[in-house]
Design a protein around this nucleic acid. Structure first.
Length: 423
RNA sequence: GGUGAGGUGGAUGAGUGGCUGAAAUCAACGGUUUGCUAAACCGUCGUACGGGCUUAAACCCGUACCGAGGGUUCGAAUCCCUCCCUCACCGCCA
């Protein structure tokens, strides 16, 4: 969430930036400022009263020690007078704080100055397109047909076991998935990311920390009995590793990677968008996360974008990089680059990575800080990106690399997959 | 799931009603000493919010926080209640 002091001091800027993010309830900004003022007044009142009570209590202790019972009793009576008002002021203060916090938590992050205006995916800025258009055989098929042909993924079986959107990978399909995961992880650890295997369910505090709650409540699977959430991305558990920590400045940047399944309810999708592996409820993803010094976060973002680009290039896929417009960005992000790979038979771009700088939006919720040279705690910046989401990469590889004889496996994956062709 | 023990600052750990925002030790940081390292010695060493304060810093003052929430009391780390978590043993089990 945004820092209160920042909103207070930059009211106009906040409103202007929120507009770019297509945020409608701009009146909340002034409401926050008004509530904050009330809060400070109330707290001063509250503190002064508490100070009086504390002072009187100390005196009572001393008087009792000296055996001056009379004087002590009269002091007690004095404190009793404060009692009523302490309770009332305390309650008022708590109510104001509650209200303030409720609103604060609903404000999305401010987009960086690089973010283009816009409200739909069409308004995203296409900043780079690269890679060769593959030459397909005349009888080229979309990946959901290829999957059947080579018996790689069974969607109907997933429906039987769970429901739609829970694919079952089989044989070479399972093998390709495993090969991708290992290759991506190796690629990341070689670049200095430490591998983690986190829990696949998180508690409320973790889901709140990265911004999934309360904003995206409905997008996560919720285990009611234990009040856990299935992770929609490993960003959630991995970033929360450092929740409520004050790290050493010299330990920054912290770089982490994790391979996990991701669970998304994604209600309301239909049609070609959800055919095959395009959009599913459970999919695997390798994620990278960085926790960095606030002065270095945009440098880190560029580094991560370059890293993901290199990985996609190594797979020989045609791709493009988009800078998301205000309306298409996530709640918590300040700047997001999406990577899309070309799925040649569907003639469709498939999002396979999203790399974002959250600045201090997440760290303010999670209270991840470091001590600067003066010893003052300061919020870190957090970033994350997919490196990469597996199913759409698989879809793209299958479609782009299909030949009369079978599917060619990208060279980089061959050592992991164990062969050069699915035939 | 059963039984027992326990949750205190970066760590260990003392503290059972006022002198405790919290002993002591370790770690960390600054310094003295030293040919270097080590040792020794001195000093510093929680966070948040509010006020002094005006843009900021420094500093000073206040308030809150000893797992979370409530209660008793003039006063709670300390007493009571509820919840959460951890550890040990048993049961079950990959």
């Amino acid at each position: 969430m945004l820092q209160l002091a920042f909103i207070r001091q930059n009211r106009d800027l906040v409103v202007e930036r929120l507009e770019i993010k297509n945020f409608k309830e701009l009146n909340l900004v002034d409401e926050i400022i008004a509530l904050d003022e009330q809060r400070r007044k109330k707290q001063t009142e509250n503190d002064e009263l508490a100070a009086k009570v504390n002072a009187a209590s100390k005196e009572i202790g001393m008087l009792m020690g000296k055996g001056e019972k009379e004087a002590a009793e009269s002091k007690k009576a004095e404190v009793a007078q404060y009692k009523e008002s302490t309770k009332q002021i305390g309650e008022e203060l708590a109510a104001i704080e509650q209200k303030l916090n409720d609103i604060l938590v609903r404000l999305p992050n401010l987009p960086s100055t690089l973010v283009p205006k816009g409200s739909t995916p069409e308004e995203n800025l296409n900043i780079k397109e690269s890679g060769d258009e593959p030459t397909l055989p005349s009888n080229a098929q979309p990946h959901w047909e290829l999957i059947k042909k080579y018996d790689l993924v069974n969607f109907e079986l997933g429906v039987k076991l769970t429901g739609s959107g829970f694919p079952v990978y089989k044989g070479k399909g399972a093998g390709l998935q495993r090969a991708m995961a290992r290759y991506f992880l190796d690629f990341n650890t070689k670049a200095g990311y430490t591998e983690y295997i986190p829990p696949y369910m998180v508690n409320e505090a973790s889901a709140f920390g990265t911004g999934q709650l309360p904003d995206k409540e409905g997008q996560m699977y919720h285990m009611q009995t234990d009040n856990f959430y299935m992770i929609p991305t490993s960003e959630v558990p991995v970033t929360n590793i450092y929740r409520d920590e004050i790290v050493k400045e010299s330990d920054l940047p912290l770089k982490m990677t994790a391979y996990t399944p991701c669970f998304r309810r994604e209600a309301g999708s239909f049609g070609a968008d959800v055919r095959g592996l395009n959009r599913v409820h459970q999919f695997d993803k390798v994620e990278i996360v960085q926790i960095v010094h606030p002065d270095k976060s945009y440098e880190a973002l560029d580094e991560m974008v370059a890293h993901v680009e290199k990985l996609i290039q190594s797979l020989g896929l045609k791709y493009r990089i988009l800078r998301l417009c205000g309306g298409d960005m996530s709640f918590a992000s300040a700047l997001t680059y999406d990577f899309e790979v070309w799925s040649a038979a569907q003639k469709k771009w498939l999002e396979c990575s999203s790399v974002s700088n959250f600045e201090s939006f997440q760290s303010n919720r999670m209270k991840i800080r470091f001590k600067d040279e003066k010893g003052k705690p300061q919020l870190v910046h957090t970033l994350n990106g997919s490196s990469l989401a597996l199913p759409r990469i698989m879809a793209s590889i299958l479609e782009n690399n299909q030949t009369e004889n079978g599917i060619k496996i990208p060279e980089a994956l061959q050592p992991y997959f164990g062969s050069a062709l699915i035939g």
